[in-house]
Design a protein around this nucleic acid. Structure first.
Lengths: 241, 241
DNA sequence: AAGTGGTCTAGACCACTTC
DNA sequence: AAGTGGTCTAGACCACTTT
């Protein structure tokens, strides 16, 4: 995985913030100092800072400098586009995955047709996985991965990390996703699987795309409402859409 | 409000996509063509495209061009950082706001202390507003705005748009927010106000900041779960935090 | 080979903050 | 006046896609 200079700089600054070499509520070295430090042009340093700015790690203040913000830790279950494996690792959680289903299908299952009425009939892999935190079921992930783009899906990939398999084994480049969070009524079957008191769950429905804008995966993620927490960092929009 | 060249270009391209002068699923003119079209340097055009890319309006594909994506319309109630007034206008909704409370407080109300235990005692304005869509109550917004930064808050501002008042009347620059979405148990009082069947609501809790990183507002937004929908566009992260 | 986007550079000028 | 970030430029070289 080739990284650009600006990504290396951004990564390095993020690491130094994490290890408190650069402290929260203080200013980073100025752009001209960073330019000397990393031996690059100012625009390259600025690109790195812009990346960190958009992530909410710093706030750039004109005439003063780049202030390090107290970025709240990623909260489970989702923020941005990350796999369960990545999140549970970065949060240092006691997490297990139980694969309930892994099957090749000749068309989109009913569950997906209902939630994604615009998607056409397609072949693919259906994966159903129960995520447990501290031994207690918390999330049911239902994935549909399209064939022939994804032609094989070993059980080991479903047990550990599908994203890792796609990116590192198959060389696919996961790029972006659209997500929709709603509160839904669920049936008894799902209620039992998640061990819920009520027939209500938080649903996170996603379309997932590769860097060439190919839709490769649909996801329905059912969460225990009492455990669900979504944390977001948002900047005020200047462009009207 | 001064806009940079790159913002003007981004805004212009977004408008042309909206009016189907640039069509979804087709490519924008190449960067060199846009450079000629807008009479700027390539880096300036690229900055505009990068902005649109991060918003999910286009997908840049190396060697091919910038593909216009089918961006789902902003769904109510929140995406990014926008005011209720802005959202209801851009979505063309039949929305009303009823101001239930507007009071100057000498300290943070209990409700906020409970949800934001890290915030210190502070003076400010407490605003409670009921949002109705098609005449039906859907959201209860509870805001706390800090004094002395915000020293006056006319009722008319609370009835229309507090953000508009802060930005255009007071000259403050709203910059970013951290948001947390959870599902909460609510009391009978709140249940009545929102006319809910169950004692459950979706809570969106926000810290809102100015461009100089000053915290100016805390918000607790209670939503009818059956109406709640949060739509998010997310790009895969390259920087590990 | 030609066209596309991706990265990087060195320099310029501006606006804001601080002294 | 000096230091900070904000914007823009003209040019270079690279990697990928298409013909």
């Amino acid at each position: 995985m080739m990284q650009s200079k600006s990504e290396i700089i951004a990564q390095d600054i993020a690491a130094k913030v994490k290890h408190q070499q650069f402290k929260v509520n203080s200013f980073l070295p100025s752009e001209s100092e960073l330019t000397k430090l990393y031996g690059t042009s100012r625009e390259t340093v600025r690109k790195a800072l812009e990346e960190l700015n958009s992530l909410g790690l710093i706030q750039k203040i004109r005439g003063k400098g780049s202030l390090v913000l107290n970025l709240e830790q990623y909260s489970f279950p989702i923020s941005g586009i990350s796999s369960f494996a990545e999140l549970s690792q970065s949060l240092g959680m006691d997490a297990q995955t139980e694969v309930l289903t892994l099957a090749k299908m000749s068309s989109l299952p009913e569950l997906f047709k209902k939630k994604f009425p615009n998607e056409k009939q397609q072949k693919g892999f259906y994966v159903e996985r129960l995520r447990k935190i501290n031994g207690k079921p918390e999330i049911l992930d239902c994935d549909f991965l399209f064939t022939p783009l994804i032609n094989e899906l070993p059980l080991s990939a479903a047990q550990t990390s599908i994203y890792n398999y796609l990116e590192n084994e198959m060389g696919l480049e996961v790029s972006y996703a659209t997500k929709e969070i709603t509160v839904e009524k669920i049936d008894e079957n799902l209620q039992k699987k998640l061990n819920l008191k009520d027939k209500t769950a938080v649903l996170v429905a996603s379309h997932n795309y590769l860097s060439d804008a190919t839709l490769f995966q649909l996801t329905l993620s059912y969460h225990d409402p009492s455990k669900f927490k979504f944390v977001d960092f948002a900047r005020r929009q200047r462009i009207k859409l």
